[in-house]
Nucleic acid binder design. Sequence first.
DNA 1: TTGCAAAGCGGACCGTCGGTCCGTATTGTT
DNA 2: AACAATACGGACCGACGGTCCGCTTTGCAA
Lengths: 197, 197
Amino acid sequence: MTERKPRKDAARNRAAVLAAADALFTDCESPEDVTMADVAAAAGVGKGTLFRAFGDRVGLVKALYEARLEPIERAVETGPPPLGPGAEPQRRVSALLDALLCFKLDNRGLALALEATGQDSPYGARHYEHWHALLRTVLEEVPGLGDEEFAAHALLAAVRADLVEHLAGRSGVPRERMRAQLADYTARVLGTAPART
Amino acid sequence: MTERKPRKDAARNRAAVLAAADALFTDCESPEDVTMADVAAAAGVGKGTLFRAFGDRVGLVKALYEARLEPIERAVETGPPPLGPGAEPQRRVSALLDALLCFKLDNRGLALALEATGQDSPYGARHYEHWHALLRTVLEEVPGLGDEEFAAHALLAAVRADLVEHLAGRSGVPRERMRAQLADYTARVLGTAPART
DNA sequence: TTGCAAAGCGGACCGTCGGTCCGTATTGTT
DNA sequence: AACAATACGGACCGACGGTCCGCTTTGCAA
C-alpha cells in the first residue's frame, strides 16, 4: 500500500483548483494567458498549494484533461458499439475519430493547453500512446491496409487540437460540417470509397 | 519605393545572426533551450541588434525557416515534375508530401521551433496557407475526391514537425521507412489502392 | 578630408512567469 | 489536551523575452 488518504483540506483544495482551472481554460482566448497564479487566485488558494497538488503546469493540465476524457474512454472500452467493442472495424475507427473530434471541439481550451505544453507534445503524453495503440489495433482488422502504425498516427494528426481550433475558430467551419469532412476523409483512408461521380 | 537599402554593418550582423541561429537550432536537444541571448552571444552581437533585425523570436524563426524552405518552393513552382507542375496529380501530391517530410527530417530543430512558436502555430504562419492552397489545388485535379480543403489539412498534419520528430527521434524509425509509410498512406488517401492480399 | 546627421549598436534594465521555500496554521490521533 | 504529521500560502528566486537609450559607425556632401 503506497496509498495514503489525503487530508480533508487537501482534497477540498485540489477540487477547487481543478474546477477553477477548468473554468479558466474553458473561456480564455489562448491557454498561454492562463497563468498558474491566475489559477491559484481563482481557486482561492496559494501557489504553493497548487504546485504541491499537481507538481507543475503540465501535471495540472494532464489531470484536467484526463478527468474530462475519462467518460469517453469508458465508452470506448465497455460501451455499446460502434464506439465500444464489437462493431465492424471501419465503423469503429470512424466512431473513434468522431468522438475525439467532438471532444476537442467541446474542450478546445483544454486540449490546446495540453498540446501546447512544450516538449514533444502531445506525443509524450500517456493518453496518446493509449489512443494510438487502440486505433492501431482496430485498423489491423480492416482488410487491405498495410502500416497500421503510421496510419494511426496520421489519422490522429487529423484531429489535433490546434488544427481543430484553426478550422472551428479562425475559419468558421461549423461542427457538423467538420464531422462530415472527417468522416469522409476517414472513409477514404479506410478504402470505404464514397463513390462519387 | 518604401525600400531602403540597409547599412553594411546591419547586413553583416543580420547574416551573422541567421547563421548562428541556424547552427544553434540544428544541434539542440529541444528548440526551447535556445534562448535569444544565446543566439545573440553566438552571433557576437547585442540583444538589441537581434531584436531590431527580426522583431521577436517568431520573426527570427520564420526568417530562418523561409530561407531554408525557399529552394524547395522554387522547385515546386518552376522545377521539373513530379515536384514541379506538369505531373499527374496523384504523383505530384505524393512528391509534395515527400519533399515536405524530407525537409522536416533535415531541419528538425528548425521546424520544431517554428511549430512550437506558441499561438495557433503552425496555422498562423504565412507558408502554411501557401502549402495548403497548393496542395488543395492539386488535389482538386484528382478524380473522385470530395472535400479537398479538409484532405489537404489532414495530409499536411501527417508530416507535422513534432510527429516527424517523435517517429524519427524517439522511436528510431529510419528515414526511408518513414518515406515509404507516408507514400503508402498518401496513396490510400488518393484512392491509388496498393492492392494487398 | 572633414563635418555631421541618420542609422545602427549593445548591454543594462524591466515585467512576467513557472517554480521553490519555509514559518505558520490545520488536522487527526492518542 | 497535547503533539506529530501534513498542508497552507505568499514572499522569493532565476530565467527569459523584450525594451531603452547613450555611444559608435556609416556614408553622404561640402
